[in-house]
Amino acid sequence: MPVLAKRENETNQLQQEEAVSPWREGWKSFKKNKVALVGLGIVLFFMIIAVFAPLLAPYGINEQELSIRNNPPSPEHWFGTDDFGRDIFSRVLYGARISLWVGLVSVSGSVIVGCFLGIIAGYYGRWIDTVISRIFDIMLAFPSILLAIAVVAVLGPSLQNALIAIAIINIPNFGRLIRSKVLSVKQEEYIMAARAVGMSDGRILFHHVLPNSLAPIIVQATLAIATAIIEAAALGFLGMGAQPPQAEWGKMLADSRQYIIQAPWTVLFPGIAIMLTVLGFNLMGDGLRDALDPKMKN
């Protein structure tokens, strides 16, 4: 192929500019958002706690000392002790493991399944779309916690089944979100261009449609982790999730609620932990939304 001399160009001012990917640009504007950084800080804080819980906890998770039942916070037991004489501080630390685990794994599950179904529905349309969308509608017709209880009731109460239940009830949210995003992305001219080049459907889906549909999913996933943690706590509270003696925050609340007057610290600290984690994920999610939403960028 002949190579021509470099042609006249309208501007060359970009010559010195570095390559900036849309993701990197998103991170840049995320960094400027102080509130979002606080959220990220809280999330990282709890993640570190979760990972290093065995090193950080002064007592074992199920170490009982019946002589100090429901003792108030003291230098030995920072958050006090519960009705079995267990150290609440240690249990809250271990609880971070369960809550984050439930949040991350269940949401990953619903993102993967939801995206798969949503992309197929959005890209192929027609009867496939109708079938998948109606299934989503049916699932959304139930209050989510009720659906979760129903799923747990079928599978049997345990932490793992609570996790599955939470994953299932979140599938339609992600599915519908990505379906609508795919519907708009597939109208874009670069999808038409990709087809004109001769690409197969699979390549277009995974190289063009999916990366351009991902931003709202990341935002939604972050916010959904917060909800999933609350849902797991709610199921734990109802006795449908974590089983004793697991140190799950919701379960801890449930077990201690009869002592709320005499020993409020037994309820207070797990409650604060739930609140802080959820707050952290929500702040982070809001920041991500501002940073990644292309509508706000242009």
Binding site: A19, S21, P22, M192, H207, H208, P211, N212
Partner: peptide, 16 residues
């Protein structure tokens, strides 16, 4: 091959 009208829309924004 095809050349498209809108150069802002016809290039995938996430690809180099």
């Amino acid at each position: 091959q095809m050349i498209f009208q809108d150069p802002y829309a016809s290039l995938n924004p996430r690809h180099t």
